[in-house]
Design a protein around this nucleic acid. Structure first.
Length: 829
DNA sequence: GCAAGGTC
């Protein structure tokens, strides 16, 4: 029996399909798919199935000096035990093993990991390696016809990276965490990729903070040809380098130009310049460009990748993690376009592309790699609202249309620049017109707005009107957006196609950045500063560049793994020698910045700082740093995680607070204002619970936390209450509900006020909706709303569906759910 | 409980 090992399940299935001509059988061992046909078995790993770590005696952070990690052993342990076990079982029966992992460095290392597992159970079985640059019949069959050997040097290059990343990351992370007393969940992390990325964000923030705005002026006017065609013109001059400049830096000069232009009612055309510009279609999607395009239509990097992975697994698009921007030879664009002909929304574009007289030649990017093709549709089309959600469809359409764009014609723009003169002052008007839409017809994501400037001739007189002098300020540089950061990481060579977006998420998780675009916390700035002072290497992209060079040397046989890791260990030793004396100083700085991140402003009772704190139960509140001398506290809403905004309350000098709670995120404002506003609003009517007996009345109330409700004036003796929305001003109208004799309420938020109606009716409708949407699956202990949603998408909608389902299939279909868990639910159901 | 890299 021959055993074929691939990097992932999907690749295993497709290779089995190709090599067996579609006749393979599939079965499961330990929850791992095994594909079998004519004396062959094929199994997919899940990327790395083993990982590097220190021996367990190093695991207690307090017992081990971080510096000791530098010379500690590094062990490999199984991280995907079921897959490792399956591999061992299958190897015992194998007469030959073929490693068919991805054709790149990490793939070679993953292949070597499989090799070691196989060798552990059988030291004789022949092990060969096949390499192919895309999973197509031609490539795969010819690779299997001429198998090769595993490249141990290339794998060793990858291992060196693993070891260096672990040692530097763990030793420095532990040092900073221990020095500041941040153990447990809030440890302070450092790493070869995350820290240079964080430094990019921090450096930009430093520029923004140091920015000193300057005032300048710009002048605009309207020009008019023949009393009808009006267009814009802007004043410009030549600066000392003879470049065109629009910004005037002296007010006196700006006023002089303004007065002259305002006095005149015409300008003379002195120059007309026409040119056509070819606007070439974009290149095929690699991961970074895909994330950029998705972010332009409102998807975060994380969300875009997560949707792309789902579309890939479902078979609608190709593998979304790729650096490649050149379609492989075996991709036939006409054939792929054919798959979309006749589709109600995507068909027209495909048909128009196929009708073109010219041969279809796709665009190419600069990067051509061997592991995966650029992201493109497979030809399978999901149904919107059926197979995929609206968001998934939107991303799918983006991928399809990008493919269209790469095989479409260029667009042609006509640019018209008109220069006019008034005395010695000049103005310019830049017009542009899209004369041939080209790829924009099939790829409507780019801005194609035109700017009108009429045809004029040199010497022509144009009417001049509405001269406008605008005072402006230079702006600080803008923060990096997520997709800009990922692009910059790519250009600096840090991270990989698969990890860059994860690294950004890590920065959020670690409390280093907040909001979108990411804004660094004071902690982030302190960590970067400390690293710059003592371990400059770990915040510089040079560390990766050097590592890449070293890895190439190992792969080429010019160095060994030990050469490279020993040298790296020595460098880290030196860093620790310098760090030793500064431990307390660094710790103080980090602790101080951690406090700065929680500070709202001065406590009105004692003048110390008010800080956002967390109670023992996990809820957030505002407390005074002077505690226990000062016991002043303010409440915060119970939903979400507080984010301290840059804006300050004018009355109290406290920063405003936003509550982050996904879709329910809202701005709470100044906690002190909220506390002062708390109390009872207008009375609505008799309390249905105690009104007739005790005379209680219903009133609109604002709690200290900022949340609102309709409650009984006899609270806490009567606890009757009805919910109200958190946002918007509440208006009590004249109309009354006949059934409950309460006024109808109107909520003013956004542009249009909406009718909440009678608060009792509103609450009853709300409850009815809730019980409607509630699923009986939720009655099972351990099954929450999220799991129900996942189960429902897998076709399990009732208790009966669940009990009849095959646990293994359910585990396969539902993310993060094991077959054992399904069995336990079945028992409970 | 540390990193970064695979993949789900």
């Amino acid at each position: 029996m021959e055993l074929i090992i691939t990097e992932k399940n999907n690749a295993a299935r497709r290779i089995a399909d190709i090599l067996s001509g579609g006749t393979y059988d599939s079965s499961r061992t330990n929850g791992v798919n095994v594909y079998e046909w004519g004396g062959k078995r094929c199994v997919g790993l899940s990327g790395h199935v083993v990982g590097v770590d220190f021996p367990s005696e190093y695991s207690d952070w307090r017992d081990v000096e971080p510096v000791e990690l530098i010379d500690a052993d590094v062990e490999k342990t199984a991280t995907k035990e079921n897959i490792v076990a399956t591999l061992r079982i299958l190897s015992r029966k194998a007469e030959r093993v073929t490693i068919a992992t991805d054709y790149d460095r990490e793939g070679e290392l993953i292949g070597k990991e499989a090799y070691d597992i196989v060798r552990n159970v059988d030291d004789d079985v022949p092990i060969q390696r096949v390499r192919f640059s895309s999973i197509t019949e031609n490539e795969v069959t010819s690779a299997f016809d001429e198998p090769d050997e595993l490249d141990f040097d290339l794998a060793a290059a990858g291992e060196a990276r693993q070891i260096i990343d672990l040692i530097w990351g763990a030793a420095l992370t532990r040092f900073l965490s221990l020095s500041s007393g941040q153990l447990g969940n809030d440890f302070i992390s450092v790493g070869r990729v995350q820290s240079p990325t964080l430094k990019l964000i921090v450096d930009r923030e430093r520029e923004i903070e140091a920015f000193d705005p300057e005032t300048y002026w710009e002048l605009f006017a309207d020009l008019e040809k023949d009393g009808e065609a009006t267009f814009d013109a802007q004043y410009f001059y030549r600066d000392e380098d003879d470049n065109e400049a629009e910004r005037v830096w002296e007010e006196a000069v700006a006023s002089e130009v303004f007065e002259t232009l305002s006095e005149r009612d015409s300008a003379t055309v002195v120059d007309v310049n026409r040119r056509t510009r070819t606007d070439t279609p974009p290149t095929p999607f690699n991961t970074t460009q895909f994330i950029r395009a998705a972010s332009a239509i409102g998807y975060s990097a994380k969300r875009a990748m997560s949707i792309a992975e789902d579309l890939y697994t479902a078979g609608y698009i190709t593998y979304p993690r790729t650096d490649n921007t050149v379609y492989p030879d075996d991709l036939d664009p006409e054939e792929l376009l054919d798959d979309f002909v006749g589709h109600p929304t995507l068909g027209d574009s495909a048909e128009s592309l196929l009708e073109s007289d010219d041969d279809i030649v796709p665009t190419e990017g600069d990067e051509e790699t061997t592991d995966h093709p650029p992201i493109h549709p497979t030809g399978e089309i999901p149904s919107r609202g059926g197979d995929v959600s609206d968001d998934e469809w939107e991303i799918f359409e983006l991928v399809v249309r990008r493919f269209y764009a790469t095989v479409a014609e260029a667009a042609i723009w006509e640019h018209l620049k008109v220069v006019t003169e008034v005395d010695d002052y000049r103005m310019k008007s830049n017009g542009k017109r899209l004369v041939e839409a080209g790829y924009h017809d099939v790829y409507p994501y780019f801005n194609t707005s035109e700017n009108f400037v009429p045809d004029v001739d040199e010497g022509e007189e144009l009417a001049l009107a509405d001269v406008d002098l605008e005072e402006k300020e230079t702006q600080p540089p803008r923060r990096y957006g997520q997709s800009r950061l990922i692009e910059t990481m790519e250009s600096l060579g840090i991270g990989t196609k698969s990890t860059r977006h994860d690294i950004l998420e890590k920065l959020y998780d670690r409390g280093y950045v907040e909001s979108d675009p990411p804004r660094p916390t004071r902690l982030a700035m302190a960590v970067v500063t400390a690293a710059e002072d003592y371990a400059d290497r770990v915040v510089s992209e040079d560390m990766t560049a050097q590592l890449e060079a070293d890895m190439d040397a190992i792969a080429n046989g010019d160095a060994t793994l030990d050469d490279v890791t020993d040298e790296s260990r020595e460098m880290l030793e030196e860093i620790f020698a310098n760090l030793a004396d500064s431990r307390d100083e660094i710790g103080d700085q980090l602790r101080k910045s951690l406090k700065d991140d929680k500070r709202l402003g001065p406590c009105p009772e004692c003048g110390e700082d008010l800080l956002v704190r967390r109670s023992r139960h996990g809820s957030y509140f505002v407390g005074c740093d002077g505690y226990p001398d000062c016991e002043n506290t303010l409440p915060l809403p119970s939903t979400g995680k507080p984010l301290i905004l840059e804006s300050e309350c004018e009355d109290h000098g406290l920063n405003e607070v936003k509550m982050l709670a996904g879709r329910q995120t809202f701005v709470h404002g100044c906690p002190l204002c909220k506390a002062e506003d708390a109390g009872e609003g207008p009375v609505l009517g008799e309390c249905p619970e105690c009104g007739s007996d005790e005379g209680g009345e219903l009133a609109v109330k604002t709690l200290q936390s900022g949340s609102r409700l309709v409650g009984c004036t006899r609270y806490p003796d009567c606890e009757y209450s009805l919910p109200l929305p958190r946002r918007g001003e509440i208006e009590v109208t004249e109309e009354r509900c006949e059934e409950h004799d309460l006024p109808e309420l109107l909520v003013h938020s956004g542009d249009d006020p909406w009718e909440l109606g009678c608060p009792i009716c509103n609450y009853q409708e709300f409850q009815a909706r809730e019980s409607d949407s509630g699923s009986e699956l939720e009655s099972i202990e351990g099954v929450g709303a999220k799991t129900v949603e996942k189960l429902e998408t897998a076709g399990i909608e009732s208790l009966a569906d669940l009990t009849e389902a095959d646990p293994d299939t359910v585990a396969e279909d539902v993310d993060g759910v094991s077959a054992d868990r399904v069995r336990s639910w079945q028992a409970k159901a």
